[in-house]
Design a protein around this nucleic acid. Structure first.
Length: 643
DNA sequence: GTAGGGTTAG
């Protein structure tokens, strides 16, 4: 390497943008370095893998290179393998095969195989495997390991094993790839056998075991590995935290996060996104604010997923304005996830028009909406009652953007019509869908029937639902409640009895409230502890005050006769959100806002009670239910009674 | 002059 080349390479490593790289390129041309194969190759590699958004420029560099060599092809194939269009890797491979076929080497195959793995495309992967076989590269340690990873991604454990057996000296990375293959198939015993026969274990092997157990919900086993590990790094901790959050064990996730801190480790971006997601789901906004401060202090604001998690947390905790602020101030790159997160946040609050405006803005910024973005915008329309607009967008999605609607999009449409009370239209839509409706679709429609009190259609929908998922207890509860609200107590009781016969237990409704940074959970009908007793006592007081000062009339009390206690409880009386709000009124400082998170959809009676409380007690209540946000203020709700 | 295995967001 000569001095000019050396200088060029050291300058290259500091190029962070395409612009600075182009300046360096101009400089190289001036110094007659542009005909230097080494320089041209390095420039291309830097564009392809180190500068975000410069991959197309890298492609042009290759197409215009006077003598494209194997190194250049490999660089471009590598760049595409980590992009959002890994299929371009494969087309570059084909081009290389045509132009420079004899020079395909272990790098070419390893990078191309990575793309096949990312695409989970077994067909492409197998073709590349053939190419490797023809060149005797299938037993090459790097190619072989990547082949195993590819088969792992495609859940072909047998093929992964075969490749492994042919590799003469598998190293620890090869073993780890094989371990992944077994876990990918959910084969714990197979994975344990591999782990047991490994000649050496590194930290990554233990982390793989942890992740594998955690993903399969085997927390006891995961905890054993975690406690026995000779060394733990940030990935070990992150794996535990993320896994616990994914399984809804928020308290334990918070515990691990605290322990991580106590043993002197610093939370990294992954454990932070994990614990933020726990805050989002549990509604722990005060704790999230502390984490936000930490994120800013340690410079993690540059990490896009962290910002996205912050936005998601703030919007799911009812502070969509904070979410917007995070979005506007993000110093790093806004990904399509960033935009979609805020769109959903606005939609949950019923800000349909703002969500639509943001969607347009996203497109203007050059991002092309994907399938999930369309789910978000359709969700926005359905939660804001924008039926016409929603139908229009649904049409454009396939006709203009060429995105084939999937079951989630159809679900949004059913919700759109159903929420708006256009039940028959929703029903026709379901029966005319080009793909068979699943249980979620029918359940959405059943929810709409419940909200709009259509008993006949509900019965019909429930029959279809029972064919698909007969043992879902919440469907039975919903139908029973539909009967109860219509005063058909005998039918309600029949549904209840069938639940007993089918041995179905109902999903208990729970609500959480944060007081002094501690989350309290309330479950209707569970009265043994002091905290719940306190809530019940306060609730009784509140309800009588509402009757006198707010003119409260219970939704079904007047027709409740000759009914078993259980149906009454379920239909209205002491739903968990009422207990949580009562607890909040008893414990929170005057003037604090009440924030509640509920796992099911709020019922009409509770919604009514919340409105009255907000007026009589001059309180602002934010309630997140399974489906959306409700901000109660001065006797009315932000959802405009539309939910 | 380029690689392979372990934890992140809608």
């Amino acid at each position: 390497m000569n001095r000019a080349e050396q200088l060029c390479f050291s300058l290259l490593s500091s190029c962070k943008s395409l612009r600075s790289l182009q300046q360096l390129q101009a400089h190289a041309t001036k110094s007659a370095l542009d005909s230097d194969q080494l320089v041209a190759g390095k420039l291309l590699l830097h564009c392809a893998v180190h500068i975000s958004g410069a991959i197309d420029y890298a492609r042009r560099l290759l197409l215009h290179a006077p003598n494209p060599d194997a190194f250049m092809y490999n660089a471009l194939i590598r760049g595409f393998s980590d992009s959002d269009t890994p299929q371009n890797s494969i087309s570059t491979f084909s081009l290389m095969l045509k132009n420079l076929g004899s020079q395909i080497d272990s790098f070419t195959l390893a990078f191309s195989l990575k793309s096949a793995a990312n695409m989970r495309c077994l067909q492409t992967g197998t073709q590349l495997h053939c190419q490797a076989l023809m060149r005797g590269l299938d037993t090459h340690i790097f190619v072989g390991t990547t082949l195993i990873s590819m088969y792992a991604e495609c859940v072909c454990v047998g093929s992964a094993r075969k490749v492994f057996d042919e590799i003469p000296n598998p190293n620890i990375v090869t073993w780890n790839a094989l371990l992944t293959a077994f876990f990918r198939r959910g084969d714990v015993e197979g994975a344990e056998r591999v782990f047991g026969s490994m000649p050496a274990k590194s930290l990554a092997s233990y982390n793989l075991m942890l992740g594998g157990y955690v993903k399969l919900g085997e927390f006891g086993l995961a905890r054993d590995v975690f406690d026995e590990m000779p060394l733990k790094d940030e990935i070990s901790w992150s794996t535990m935290i993320v896994g616990l959050v994914q399984y809804g064990c928020f308290d334990e996730a918070f515990l691990y996060f605290r322990r991580l801190h106590e043993v002197g480790m610093r939370p990294n971006e992954v454990s932070l996104t994990g614990v933020l997601s726990a805050c989002a789901q549990a509604g722990a906004v005060e704790f999230a604010k502390i984490l936000h401060g930490f994120v800013e202090k340690v410079g993690l604001v540059w990490i896009t997923p962290v910002n996205n998690a912050l936005m998601d947390t703030y919007s799911k905790c009812g502070s969509v304005d904070m979410a917007r602020l995070v979005f506007e101030r993000m110093p790093g790159k806004k990904s399509i996830v960033s935009w979609t997160t805020l769109i959903v946040g606005l939609a949950m609050q019923g800000y349909g028009e703002e969500a639509l405006a943001l969607f347009d803005e996203m497109e203007e910024s050059g991002l092309r909406p994907d399938g999930v973005a369309f789910v978000a915008i359709l969700y926005a329309c359905s939660h804001a009652g924008l039926v016409e607009k929603g139908s229009e967008i649904f049409e454009t999605m396939s006709k203009v953007y060429g995105i084939k609607p999937e079951i989630e999009h159809y679900g949004c449409m059913v919700d759109l019509y159903g929420r708006a009370g256009q039940l028959l239209k929703a029903y026709d839509f379901v029966t005319q869908m080009p793909i068979p409706p699943n249980d979620v679709i029918w359940r959405t429609l059943l929810g709409a029937c419940s909200f709009h009190g259509n008993v006949e259609l509900a019965e019909q929908v429930k029959r279809s639902l029972s064919e698909l998922d007969p043992s879902n207890s919440s469907d039975h509860v919903l139908l029973s409640n539909i009967y109860a609200f219509a005063g058909k107590w005998k039918d309600a009781a029949t549904v209840r009895r069938s639940m007993v016969e089918l041995k179905l237990t109902k999903t208990p409704g729970w609500s959480m409230i944060e007081v002094d940074k501690i989350m309290y959970t309330f479950i209707a009908g569970v009265k043994q502890d002091d905290m719940t007793m306190e809530a019940y006592k306060k609730l009784t007081e509140i309800m009588s005050k509402l009757k006198v000062e707010g003119g409260y009339i219970p939704e079904v009390d007047n027709v409740l006769h000759d009914v078993e206690e259980e149906e009454k409880e379920d239909a209205v009386v002491a739903h968990s959100e009422k207990l949580a709000v009562a607890f909040g009124i008893a414990r929170l400082a005057r003037g604090s806002n009440v924030r509640i998170v509920k796992n099911l959809r709020v019922c009409k009676d509770c919604h009514n009670v919340m409105k009255l409380i907000s007026k009589v007690y001059k309180l602002e209540i934010r309630l997140r239910d399974r489906s959306r946000f409700h901000s109660f203020k001065n006797g009315s709700c932000s959802c405009r009674d539309y939910w």
